[in-house]
């Protein structure tokens, strides 16, 4: 079942005293429930803009973008926000946990925008979710008392707590060491599989990209399908040229 459908999507930005800048051009993409998609690309290749579109935070300039079979352009602003809250979970590179709130409160945050059972039973649901990511014993911990890996696990719990059908992971391991990154990705994959959600990972890291079943590359606003990297990529060895990203250190120290 197709969850996201992009056909001929372009996004241009009007600049003052300059011709319009095309950030994305002719993007075609179909994402179905349960898909594992990775998108690699250099800085400035349009990843953020694509993430905006996929996460229903922005509208394409031209082309069709459908979510769950409905054109996104037909959504009102509030409706788009509600669909995003219900069906899309975000995971960020810098975790972006809300400071000063406990792990539990952070995971409860998306449920504050839900209704009915999800809203009123948010504490119980969030506790269960933290249990699932192995942090049932750190409910009351503040983000600054958690390690990087733990923070990202809280972020994963937060993104999944409303049972989204699409998970957008923006450089999910960018701020983690190799081993922790692998752990986090394994957890993310496991939880996403358990919930049947589609997972789109935007990354610089070929090793992380290799975990997906479909591999895409964004280059100067053009999205292309690339072949699967071989296993050596996972071991930090040779990475196929079309997955190599020159402008980054794949794994931070």
């Amino acid at each position: 079942m197709t969850l996201l459908h992009l056909a001929g999507v372009t996004r241009t930005v009007q600049l003052i005293d300059a011709p319009p800048l095309t950030i994305l051009s002719g993007v075609d993409l179909d994402v179905a429930v349960g898909d594992r998609v990775s998108i690699v690309g250099r800085s400035g290749s349009g990843k953020s803009t694509l993430l905006n579109l996929l996460g229903l935070l922005d509208n394409p300039t031209t082309g069709d973008l459908e979510f769950d079979g409905r054109p996104v352009k037909s959504f009102s602003s509030a409706e788009r926000d509600r669909v995003r809250g219900r069906d899309v979970g975000f995971i960020f590179q810098q975790f972006n946990l809300l400071q000063g709130r406990t792990a539990l409160e952070n995971v409860m945050t998306p449920l504050l925008y839900a209704q009915g059972k999800q809203f009123w039973q948010r504490a119980r649901i969030a506790t269960e979710m933290l249990d699932r990511v192995g942090l049932g014993h750190r409910l009351g911990a503040m983000p600054d008392k958690l390690s990087g890996g733990e923070q990202q696990r809280v972020a994963i719990a937060r993104s999944l707590v409303r049972g989204p059908r699409l998970i957008l992971a923006d450089e999910p391991t960018g701020a983690l060491d190799l081993e922790t990154g692998a752990d986090v990705m394994a957890l993310l994959d496991e939880v996403a599989t358990g919930s049947g959600a589609a997972l789109i990972t935007i990354t610089h890291d070929p090793a992380i990209a290799a975990l997906a079943t479909r591999h895409l590359r964004l280059d100067h606003g053009v999205l292309t399908v690339v072949g699967a990297p071989d296993d050596s990529a996972l071991l930090g060895g040779d990475v196929p040229d079309d997955l190599r990203d020159d402008d980054l250190a794949a794994v931070p120290a």
């Binding site: 996460g55 935070l57 602003s77 509030a78 926000d81 509600r82 995003r84 809250g85 219900r86 975000f90 960020f92 972006n96 809300l98 945050t109 998306p110 504050l112 925008y113 839900a114 937060r158 409303r162």
Partner: peptide, 10 residues
């Protein structure tokens, strides 16, 4: 921004 991404309407 984080809240908006988790479904907080304007």
């Amino acid at each position: 921004g984080v809240r908006r991404s988790f479904g907080a309407t304007a």
